[in-house]
Design a protein around this nucleic acid. Structure first.
Length: 428
RNA sequence: GGGGGGUUUCCCGAGCGGUCAAAGGGGUCAGACUGUAAAUCUGAUGGCGUAGCCUUCGCAGGUUCGAAUCCUGCACCCCCCA
């Protein structure tokens, strides 16, 4: 049994608990069962889920048993917490697909095969789906005074707004989550729930319900919201959320997000998201402060987190891609590796025959690849020294490309400027 | 209904018979610098294998050796008077 409370404290993962006095001791007494919920709003987890996930992970590492609950039922309703508008309902098929996608990813963070403290993965649809409406109102609804519900932040905030209402459906959300906690307590002896700070109301609702229905005392703990030093949301890119699914966000982009993190957020993220020990983090941060231009903090963070989410192979791919995207000459790579590295880069297929005889004029190649709108533009780029083939600068507008300029069997990597890439594939 | 002003290249905006592919600014694209940031500086910015040619200045005609620039008609926008 390790002291998980102390661990979470130095990692600054505790925002609020239902019992600061007794919780640390209570957690050290014996292995406890802890749960966190994940709403299946998409077919992949994203960085926003990472906080709760890492907390479960640390509980397990300390010797406790984590339960990840995917909200097949609650996801059908939509949690109003932290949301400014009524959400649209997802179809049952979408929900099922989403639940399946998230399950796969959860396995990376939690150990599902280690004896007593093996993680559990459950779907609340399995117990909520069977409930009849009348039954639910009699057995559960009866215990929720509306005046108490109305004081919850998630409800109050929505009612205070002039531009968004709150449907009866979403209003009922907290009853479902409260019942989840009670069910998990009865079924798995789960006694503590963790979640983001916006989950406080839902968690305490569950604790109240458990006391009334079962006469037991449960606990709750929230972590801080994940925001950047400038106040914006962490894990948001111009193209949307930062997903954990490599098909939605490539390991390279995932890695790059952390490499580009503000200096001010590095310490915090190392504590939140890596398994590194406290003194190691202190060392990394100290080194980083001494020479911020080296980005050693970001590098450590990016490497640790990418390895955790995408595995050692994913990290290697991301590092290789980084090296190449920042100008390393391209050589010794085959078609498959290049396709993987440049997965998000536009590509165009041309007949191999274009490389024969005279070869392919470099300006035509840039236009074909979409890096220039006209040959004139291509010509200018070349004249200004901004055109590259396989990351080698093209010196002359007269350059013609032949089979010898292929980076691999059939791929040629074109680049305009610092980082606009495109591939040309030459089919037989 | 009457009078006046406008419509320019991706955007704003100059041009008011040839030296206009059209000033200037913004944007964009390159280059330098840099910590994969911002700022700054430099260059480029209709098309075409380009000492040249072709297409652009609301639309259609016309005057002229020559029109973004002058004339006529049409369309749309703005302002003033009624």
């Amino acid at each position: 049994m390790q002291n998980v409370f102390a661990e979470l404290t130095w990692r600054r993962l505790i925002n609020q608990t239902t019992d600061d006095q007794h919780l640390p001791k209570w957690l050290n007494e014996k292995p406890r069962t802890v749960y966190a919920g994940f709403d299946p709003t998409a077919d992949s987890l994203h960085v926003g889920h990472l906080m709760a996930l890492m907390i479960l992970r640390r509980f397990q590492q300390a010797g406790h048993r984590p339960i990840a609950v995917v909200g097949g039922a609650t996801g059908m309703i939509g949690d109003p917490s932290g949301k400014s508008e009524e959400r649209k309902l997802l179809s049952v098929e979408t929900l099922n697909a989403n639940v399946a996608g998230m399950e796969k990813q959860l396995r990376r963070f939690l150990d599902f095969d280690c004896g007593d403290r093996s993680a559990l993965l459950v779907n609340n649809y399995d117990w909520m789906g069977r409930f009849g409406y009348l039954e639910f109102l009699r057995d559960i609804g009866k215990h929720f005074p509306v005046n108490v519900m109305l004081t919850k932040d998630s409800v109050k905030n929505r009612l205070d707004r002039d531009d968004a209402g709150l449907s009866y459906t979403e209003f009922s959300y907290m009853l479902l989550q409260a019942y989840d906690f009670v069910h998990l307590n009865a079924e798995f002896d789960c006694e503590i729930q963790v979640g983001g700070s916006d989950q406080w109301g839902n968690i305490t609702a569950g604790i109240d319900l458990a006391r009334r229905l079962r006469g037991v005392q449960l606990y709750g703990m929230t972590c801080p919201l994940l925001t950047k030093s400038d106040g914006s949301k962490m894990g948001k890119t111009e193209s949307g959320a930062l997903w954990l699914d490599p098909n939605k966000t490539s390991p390279y982009h995932f890695y790059q997000y952390w490499i580009n993190l503000e200096d001010a957020d590095v310490d915090k993220c190392l504590r939140f998201f890596t398994d590194l020990a406290e003194d190691r983090i202190r060392t990394v941060v100290a080194e980083h402060r001494a020479a911020p231009e080296k980005r050693s903090g970001q590098r450590t963070l990016a490497a640790e987190l990418t390895r955790l989410v995408h595995g050692a192979d994913g990290l290697r791919a991301a590092e290789k891609a980084t090296e190449i995207f920042f100008g390393a000459e391209i050589s010794d790579l085959d078609d498959g590796q290049l396709s993987a590295i440049f997965a998000d880069v536009p590509s165009k297929e041309l007949p191999r025959q274009r490389l024969e005889d005279e070869g392919l004029w470099i300006a035509d190649a840039l236009v074909e690849a979409g890096l220039a709108k006209s040959k004139g533009e291509a010509r200018r780029t070349i004249e200004q020294g901004g055109a590259y083939v396989n990351n080698r600068r093209i010196e002359s507008v007269e350059t013609r490309l032949t089979a010898g300029d292929l980076a691999s069997r059939s791929v040629m990597v074109l680049r305009s400027g610092k980082k606009r890439y495109a591939l040309l594939r030459f089919a037989d």
